[in-house]
Amino acid sequence: MTDIFMIAALITAVIVFGALVRLILGPTNPDRVVAVDTINTLTVAVMILLGVVYQQYIFIDVAIVYALLSFVSTLYIAKHIGGEL
């Protein structure tokens, strides 16, 4: 039953590499921040799926905290790029 969650987590992890290409190529800094933001969102999804796969439901709490902390980091990088920091 939990096999399909494992497969979904693996496919999402493969998708992350596509965003990694944009992170390396990105011509400007805002492009790289967009790529990092996308990777953070996908990481939260992978954490929730893996929490169900391994029956370790504490992973979901970790995912909530990760989402909020990545939001704070995105805000600070955005302020730095906009020249307000």
């Binding site: 979901i60 939001f71 790029i81 906009g82």
Partner: peptide, 29 residues
Amino acid sequence: HTIIAVFALAITNAAGSHAIARAAHRSGQ
């Protein structure tokens, strides 16, 4: 907990994209 994670994700993604767009325009791009 999953529903709370979904709400956190939706709100923070919208606010974060707003911040990135504003910063990109201010940085002259």
